[in-house]
């Protein structure tokens, strides 16, 4: 990217705590970094946090930057590290949620063959929070993957998975409360 104004001057100003210089640099590099963050984190919320964390680092590092070096490689390195760390956090959460376990096992959800039970399941699904319900139906009725649901609802696949786990957990609890002995083939 072509540098904004005279970048060396701006970096010098930045090291002297100029918020104005910071603003110019932020406006210049932010759009790309934000878009890249959305591409990798798959949702606007985490991408906004990424932008904030990356530029926060720039602001806190303002005294230590080499003013005769271009800023872009520095920013890109920070961005890479930040995105990889965030992705790993997501990965960690992803593998921790085991929503499939909730739907099977000894006291798992039983298969519903009776029509009235289906109606009851529908009633239970109806009590779910809107987003959980939406995720659940898209996964179960439309057979979409978490990524596809995420793309449709503008959520990360991790968030979709989390919603799904919560939905299944609450359905299971309600069925157990009603002493249901039906096995539900959910997955």
């Amino acid at each position: 990217m072509k540098p904004v104004y005279d970048e060396k001057k701006l970096l010098k100003l930045l090291s002297d705590d100029s918020e104005y210089a910071f603003q110019l640099l932020y406006d210049h590099y932010r759009p790309r970094i934000y878009k890249l963050s959305v591409l990798y984190l798959k949702a606007p919320g985490p991408a906004q946090e990424a932008v904030q964390d990356i530029f926060l680092k720039l602001w806190f590092s303002r005294k230590n930057l080499l003013t005769d070096q271009p800023l872009e490689p520095w920013l890109l390195t920070v961005t890479k590290n930040h995105l990889i760390n965030q992705l790993k956090k997501v990965a960690h959460q992803w593998v921790t949620i085991d929503e499939k376990d909730l739907a099977s096992g000894e006291d798992g959800l039983l298969s519903l063959e009776l029509k009235e039970s289906k109606a009851r399941l529908a009633a239970i699904i109806d009590t779910l929070p809107a987003q959980q319900k939406q995720v659940f139906l898209l996964a179960k009725e439309d057979g979409l993957t978490y990524a596809q649901i995420g793309a449709r609802l503008n959520l990360s696949a991790l968030t979709v998975k989390t919603h799904m786990a919560r939905a299944l957990k609450s359905i299971k609890q309600q069925l157990l409360r009603n002493n249901s002995r039906f096995l539900l083939i959910l997955l």
């Binding site: 932010r30 790309r32 878009k35 890249l36 959305v38 591409l39 906004q48 932008v51």
Partner: peptide, 12 residues
């Protein structure tokens, strides 16, 4: 990153 500006993603 090189092509990020071409991504069909709305800016903030």
């Amino acid at each position: 990153y090189e092509h990020a500006h071409q991504l069909l993603i709305d800016d903030l």
